[in-house]
Amino acid sequence: MKTLVLEDELTIFSASEQKNRLLAFLESDHELEINLSKVDEIDTAGLQLLILIKREAALHGKALRFILHSKAVLEILELANLTTAFGDQVILPHNEE
């Protein structure tokens, strides 16, 4: 199992590099884990990438988990009503409920 730690920002400014990084990571193993704890900024472009990678993983029959969502990530998932889709099996570090 491999883990990718996404760092800094997941925004339109870095979307191109992040896309390549994520797709390359998808090739690396069958069981994957993306650590979101270091993502301190995320926008719609970043959210699109998360949606893309999740879809691609399912398409290729790979097990992908998102772990340790940062506050910024949780906030945007909540806004897009996608918390359930991306928050699976994860202890939410910022339990704001």
């Binding site: 339109i12 896309k19 699109q48 879809r55 897009a80 009503n81």
Partner: peptide, 22 residues
């Protein structure tokens, strides 16, 4: 109630990360 619609997003190779699909 809010639903995010992302069906317009093309396959990974054609997906332009700077284009808005949602």
């Amino acid at each position: 109630q809010l639903t995010t619609i992302s069906e317009a997003m093309p396959p990974a190779e054609q997906m332009d990360p700077e284009t808005c699909y949602v």
